[in-house]
């Protein structure tokens, strides 16, 4: 789906078109699910809950989204907040819900051309290529490139503890953040 097609879909979905909702769901549910599946504390039902809740909230707030190009990053932000609140337990869920409400009000990121999605994906692929062959690369490959297994399932397959898989994924994610932040600062956004 091209950027223009996504923008058209978002406009139609904001007007209530069901087929546009379906197309957006099918296009973006994988990214949202990846966020939730990275939390090894979450079971399959909770992961599904994150996916469903993310899209329900996003579709209800869609008419307020000012930048269609920000839709993907907006979705994963909602998903991460919800996954965090579920993984941390009921005590902090109320606070996370408040944070989420604030997020929905204010999220209007400006992404420089050097960090358009396509460029970012290329950066991530390069970083994966650069990883030395070994358990970290295997974990990252299974989780992000193949994208079928949860952190829990990868732990079972590799005979590791859940926290070891989460740690590897977080470490790689930090490497991606470091590289993207460098580019963001170089582009003068910082």
């Amino acid at each position: 789906m091209t950027e223009e097609e996504v923008a058209t879909c978002i406009r139609r979905a904001a007007g209530g078109a069901q087929d546009a909702h379906r197309e957006l769901y099918q296009r973006f549910q994988g990214s949202v699910r990846r966020v939730a599946l990275g939390y090894s504390a979450l079971g399959p039902a909770e992961v599904e809950d994150v996916v469903q809740e993310t899209f329900v909230r996003a579709f209800r707030e869609l008419p307020r989204l000012q930048h269609p190009r920000a839709f993907g990053s907006w979705l994963v932000t909602i998903a991460r907040h919800h996954a965090q609140s579920l993984s941390r337990g009921a005590q902090v869920r109320g606070r996370a819900a408040e944070d989420l409400a604030l997020e929905l009000e204010t999220t209007t990121p400006a992404i420089p051309p050097a960090l358009e999605l396509e460029r970012r994906v290329a950066v991530v692929r390069e970083l994966i290529e650069e990883l030395p062959e070994g358990p970290e690369k295997e974990t990252v490959r299974l989780f992000y490139l193949e994208g079928e297994l949860s952190a829990r399932e990868i732990a079972e397959r590799l005979g590791l503890g859940k926290s070891a898989v989460t740690m590897r994924l977080e470490r790689f994610r930090a490497r991606v953040k470091r590289q993207l932040l460098s580019r963001l600062l170089a582009a003068g956004v910082g």
Binding site: G30, S31, V32, R33, R34, V35, G72, S73, W74, V76, T77, A79, R80, T107, P109, I111, L115, L117, R120, V121, V123, V124, R125, Y144, L145, E146, G147, E148, R173, V176, K177, L180, L181, L184
Partner: peptide
């Protein structure tokens, strides 16, 4: 940064 990272990582599969 968090959203940009998650969006890129989620697009690989």
């Amino acid at each position: 940064l968090e959203a940009m990272t998650d969006e890129a990582l989620g697009t690989l599969a």
